[in-house]
C-alpha cells in the first residue's frame, strides 16, 4: 500500500487575469519508509507539490491520497488534525516558536497538538533531543542557538509525534555543508530506525546524493525519476 498516491495532480494559481500552472498532471506513488527528493529549477513547482502532499493546500484537479486519505476532501479543521496526527514538517527557515525553549519546541506537538500524557511526553522529547544531539541545549531559546542547531531541533519536533511522513522543503538551504550533512544524516537514521518516510524538495546536490529516489520537476511537470546514491539498490 503506497503512502502517497498522486494522480494527474494539477495546481493552477489565479492572480486576477493571469493563471499560473504551477503543477500539470503530476502522477507518482511513494512507498512507506522512503527517502526521496523532488528537484528542479526555481519556480518548477516543488514547494507547490510539497504543500499539496502536506495537506496545506488543495489541488485544482486530480486526486491525492496520503495515508489512504483523500486530502482534498478535508475541511480546514480536519486537515489540521490530519497533519498533527500523520505528518511532520521541516522548514527552510526552521520556524521554531521563539517564546518556547528547545525542549518546549520539541514538546509542543505532543502537548498542544496531541494530548500525550506527561510521562510519555518527557521520555519521547528527551530521547529525540538525544538523537539530534541537543540535550545540553534544551533550556535555550531559539535565538540563542545556531542555524544548524535550530534545524536539528526542528527535525526533533517533526519526528516527536511518530509521523508516517515528514515533509522538508529545502531543509538545508540555510545551512553550511557540514551542518547540512549532519542534519541529513540524522534524518536518514530516523528513517532507518522508525520507517518514517522523508520527502524533500531541494536544489542541494548534497541531498540529491543522499536520497534513494530523485524526482525532477520542470515547469510544473514531472520529467524524471532516478535512483539516488542513498538508494537501497545503489
Amino acid at each position: 500500500m503506497s503512502l502517497v498516491n498522486a494522480e494527474n495532480l494539477t495546481k493552477v494559481y489565479t492572480m486576477g487575469e493571469i493563471e499560473v500552472k504551477a503543477l500539470q498532471s503530476v502522477s507518482f506513488e511513494i512507498e512507506p519508509a522512503s527517502f526521496i527528493s523532488f528537484i528542479g529549477p526555481s519556480g518548477s513547482g516543488k514547494t507547490t507539490l510539497l504543500n499539496l502532499i502536506g495537506c496545506l493546500d488543495k489541488p485544482t484537479s486530480g486526486t491525492l491520497k496520503v495515508a489512504e486519505v483523500n486530502t482534498s476532501e478535508l475541511t480546514h479543521k480536519e486537515a489540521a488534525a490530519f497533519r498533527g496526527k500523520n505528518l511532520g514538517f521541516i522548514f527552510q527557515d526552521f520556524n521554531l516558536i521563539p517564546v518556547l525553549t528547545v525542549y518546549e519546541n520539541v514538546e509542543y506537538p505532543l502537548l498542544i497538538v496531541q494530548n500525550v500524557p506527561s510521562e510519555e511526553r518527557k521520555t519521547r522529547v528527551i530521547s529525540l533531543l538525544k538523537t539530534v544531539g541537543m540535550t545540553d541545549q534544551k533550556d535555550k531559546y531559539p535565538d540563542q542557538i545556531s542555524g544548524g542547531q535550530k534545524q536539528r531541533v526542528a527535525v526533533a519536533r517533526a519526528l516527536v509525534t511518530n509521523p508516517r511522513l515528514v515533509l522538508a522543503d529545502e531543509p538545508t538551504a540555510n545551512l553550511d555543508s557540514k551542518t547540512a550533512f549532519m542534519v541529513i544524516d540524522i534524518m536518514r537514521q530516523m528513517k532507518e530506525e522508525f520507517g518514517v518516510t522523508f520527502i524533500f524538495s531541494t536544489h542541494d546536490p548534497k541531498i540529491v546524493s543522499e536520497v534513494e529516489t530523485v524526482y525532477t520537476l520542470q515547469d510544473g511537470m514531472l520529467i524524471g525519476r532516478a535512483q539516488g546514491k542513498g538508494g537501497r539498490y545503489a
Binding site: K77, G84, R157
Partner: peptide, 16 residues
C-alpha cells in the same frame, strides 16, 4: 503570521 502558519502546519487546531 508566519508563526501562526507554522503552528497551524504542524497540526494545531483552529480552536487552539
Amino acid at each position: 503570521i508566519r508563526e501562526i502558519g507554522t503552528i497551524s502546519a504542524i497540526g494545531t487546531k483552529p480552536k487552539k
